[in-house]
Amino acid sequence: MPVITLILLGSIVLLPAAALLSLRWASRSGQLGRFDRAALLPFDEEEPVGRATDQILGDNRR
């Protein structure tokens, strides 16, 4: 199975190399900065942080 061996050896080199290169590219182009702001993405003006939704059971029944 020489073809498979070739793929195996190739991938051992290529996969980590590509991973390192893409990480380097990402950090250089500033894509890894200020991560935690993304935590606010589920919210918007209509349903801002602090407003609970789906409160339909019990006393809150509309």
Binding site: D36, A39, P42, F43
Partner: peptide, 19 residues
Amino acid sequence: YYFIPKVIGRPIHSYYLSV
């Protein structure tokens, strides 16, 4: 990850941990 913050109206505790 979407519904817990959305329902209680509070962002996920740590975005770094989620990464």
